[in-house]
Amino acid sequence: MKSVLSQPELLLAEVGKQVENEKAHYSTGTMDKEIKELNRRLKGYVGQERRLMNVLRMDLATPDIVLDEINLMKKEREADQVRLNGLIQAKENLAKALEMQESIKELCAKVVPCLDSCSNAEKKDAYTYLDLKISATPEGVSIKGYLDLNVLTTARTWGYLPFEAYISVA
């Protein structure tokens, strides 16, 4: 852990990779364009619902057909809302990671000297707090956890950024 925190650029690179992976998972193009398109589609569902109700009132389709269409539209709207929420969160995470780079470096610089003077109980508490998962092989060590960004700022509550780092044994 000390090795990872002594090189915050490793941590920042891994956080950046995870944010980019999240972005790629939700986005097939530019995030802003997709967010705008999804917002437009979500607003359009109200009009579609009204048109379906008019079809029902005019006896142009059976109630079962209209209900099936309304249920299908509801599922599409829910999927679009989930996708929109994911895109917005991924965009926020990317912005947070970029905004917090200097603060993360400062935090790492403060924590590393303290690791030598911490008791085993304090280290255990810190590892529990970071929710660390460490796995070692003869080739290297993989460390996964969560960095609490609330420690880095008092202006807003940011939440947690996941991180993963791999240190090869040379």
Rank of each mutant, 00 (worst) to 15 (best):
R83K: 13
Q101R: 15
A95N: 10
L84C: 07
L56K: 01
L87T: 00
L87F: 05
K96C: 09
K91F: 12
L56H: 00
A61L: 05
E69T: 10
K75M: 13
E78K: 07
L87N: 00
A61D: 09
M73P: 01
K74F: 10
L84T: 01
E78G: 03
L87C: 06
K96M: 15
L72E: 15
L84A: 03
I65S: 08
V82F: 07
T62P: 14
N93R: 10
A95Q: 11
Q101A: 15
L84Q: 01
L60Y: 08
L60I: 06
K91E: 10
D59W: 06
A90E: 04
E99C: 12
K96V: 15
V66K: 00
K75L: 12
L60Q: 09
N71T: 11
M73K: 09
N93D: 14
V55C: 04
L72H: 14
L87P: 00
S103E: 15
I65F: 09
E69I: 05
N54S: 05
T62Q: 13
L98C: 10
Q101D: 15
P63F: 04
D59S: 08
R83F: 03
D64V: 03
S103Y: 15
K91A: 13
L84D: 01
K91W: 09
K91D: 08
M100A: 09
Q89P: 06
I88W: 06
Q81R: 11
L67I: 12
E92M: 11
M100K: 00
T62A: 04
M58T: 08
M58R: 12
L67E: 14
L72P: 06
E102K: 06
D80V: 05
I88P: 00
T62S: 14
A90N: 03
I70K: 03
R77T: 05
L67A: 12
Q101L: 05
L60E: 14
L60C: 06
M58H: 07
L60F: 09
D64M: 02
K91I: 07
Q81G: 01
R77W: 01
N85M: 13
A90Y: 02
E78L: 00
D64L: 01
M100F: 06
K96T: 12
N93M: 06
I70N: 01
E99N: 14
L67R: 08
D64F: 03
D64Q: 09
I88V: 15
V66L: 03
E69S: 14
E76G: 03
I88D: 02
N54P: 05
N85Y: 11
N85S: 10
L87W: 02
Q81S: 07
K91S: 15
D80H: 02
V66N: 02
N54F: 02
D68W: 06
V55E: 01
A95V: 12
R83I: 02
N54M: 05
G86K: 00
D59Q: 11
T62E: 13
V55I: 13
L94P: 02
D64T: 10
E92Y: 12
V66A: 00
I70Q: 04
E76F: 03
